[in-house]
């Protein structure tokens, strides 16, 4: 996690330097935008982490392991894709739950299928944004072509991770 922090810090430094010499760049505007995004998280993130920590105790690790574990193969990838599509919320609430599954022994391929399904299918986001903005036909067509993607990503990850 230290390497993750250092990576982000490096990118932040690069952005700050670019913004400093860019005519449109502004440290003040960037800080304001960052703060605007941080505000809602001050309540959401602790609550989501708490919920996930308690759920981690309650969810039987054996069941997760046999359903989504490394050995579950492509049926596990399929099940994870299904779960991912229905996983609610943005990353702030969904990812703590994914970490719970990770700690309980879910496989890499299955988790990648789950996160891909959550990001590309996201039925809650479809109902809230896509349907009203793009209309039913465009939305339905996009969903239809996106259905196989999580299974593809999970299977590919399984092949590479082996």
């Amino acid at each position: 996690m230290l390497s993750a922090f250092l990576t982000i810090l490096t990118l932040l430094a690069v952005c700050a330097v670019v913004a400093h010499f860019h005519p449109q760049g502004s440290h003040r505007a960037a800080a304001r935008e960052g703060w605007r995004q941080l505000q809602p998280l001050l309540t959401r993130l602790p609550i989501a982490l708490l919920a996930a920590a308690f759920l981690a105790v309650l969810i039987p690790a054996d069941a997760i392991g046999s359903l989504f574990g490394e050995a579950s193969g492509w049926p596990g990838v399929l099940a994870a894709s299904l779960l991912g599509g229905f996983l609610p919320g943005g990353p702030v609430v969904a990812f703590p739950l994914v970490v719970v599954l990770f700690d309980a022994g879910a496989g890499i391929a299955q988790l990648i299928a789950l996160i891909t399904a959550w990001s590309v299918l996201a039925f809650h986001r479809v109902a809230a944004f896509e349907l009203p903005m793009l209309g039913a036909r465009t939305t339905a067509a996009r969903l239809l072509v996106s259905l196989p993607l999580p299974v593809f990503a999970g299977t590919a990850a399984g092949v590479i991770a082996l």
């Binding site: 993750a4 932040l12 935008e33």
Partner: peptide, 16 residues
């Protein structure tokens, strides 16, 4: 800590 740094970076990207 990663989140705060990343959000600030995201703020820069959105202005750029």
């Amino acid at each position: 800590p990663i989140l705060v740094a990343a959000l600030l970076m995201s703020g820069y990207v959105q202005t750029l």
